[in-house]
């Protein structure tokens, strides 16, 4: 399927406006942008970067537990995608493709880094944390909110780092990024059954590690 730049732009424009019967999925939108890049409109790739950089960084950061490493790996993933974009034929969705690159890059990095690098945590946006959780723990521990979040962050990251990369990625994609089993199976190139199995095992391990915080 080859869509010209003009048609693709009109298609996206109509979809955004809700004109006609155009029902456009994220996958179609991404594919249209990818084709623009393939046709030489290099700057269009920035739209894909802006769209996926946050979740991509989040996945890699939770995998590596290090902000600087996550930054480098995320940038490399985008560059790899950009360099290989001519080979992208739209058989899978772009986000599955770019996430797969990011996940593989992260796992390769973790395997190569024999010695665990120092943990460099990201700052927590308190507004995004459920107020119920914060109130529960502050009431229970009589600890200041900021300190409590810091402690909780450390414990969560430690627990995640104890998991193997293949179990860690399933938990991150499902519980943090909110992906379903099918999407995770596509990204990790495994079956949905394997994803469920790994997720079950990983959660069991995490519950054991975080016993003191879970009722």
């Amino acid at each position: 399927m080859k869509i010209s730049k003009t048609i693709a732009n009109e298609f996206i424009s109509d979809a955004k406006k809700g004109v006609g019967n155009a029902v456009v999925s994220d996958r179609d939108l991404d594919w249209a942008i990818v084709q623009r890049v393939q046709n030489g409109e290099v700057s269009a790739f920035n739209q894909l970067v802006q769209k996926y950089r946050q979740s991509l960084f989040s996945i890699i950061y939770n995998m590596t537990g290090n902000r600087e490493d996550a930054t480098d790996i995320a940038q490399e993933a985008f560059i790899k995608a950009f360099q290989s974009i001519k080979q992208f034929r739209g058989q899978a969705s772009f986000y599955t493709w770019i996430y797969r690159i990011a996940v593989n890059s992260s796992i390769t990095f973790i395997k190569r880094a024999k010695k665990q690098r120092f943990i460099n945590y990201e700052t927590i946006d308190e507004t995004l944390v459920s107020s119920d959780i914060l109130e529960y723990f502050t009431a229970k521990t009589k600890t200041e909110k900021g300190a409590l979040l810091k402690e909780l962050q450390e414990k969560l990251n430690e627990a995640l780092q104890k998991l193997s990369p293949k179990h860690r990625i399933v938990v991150i994609l499902h519980e943090v990024e909110g992906m379903n089993h099918k999407e995770i199976a596509d990204i990790t190139k495994t079956s949905e059954g394997t994803v469920r199995s790994r997720l079950h095992y990983a959660k069991k391990m995490l519950q054991a590690y975080l016993q003191e915080y879970i009722g």
């Binding site: 939770n62 700052t123 529960y136 909780l152 943090v176």
Partner: peptide, 21 residues
């Protein structure tokens, strides 16, 4: 979530979403 109820693992992992640059 009820504040009198213990948080579960899924509730805790939501904290990870708040870690954003």
């Amino acid at each position: 979530m009820n504040i009198n109820k213990h948080p579960n693992l899924e509730d805790l992992l939501k904290v990870k979403k708040a870690e954003q640059p």
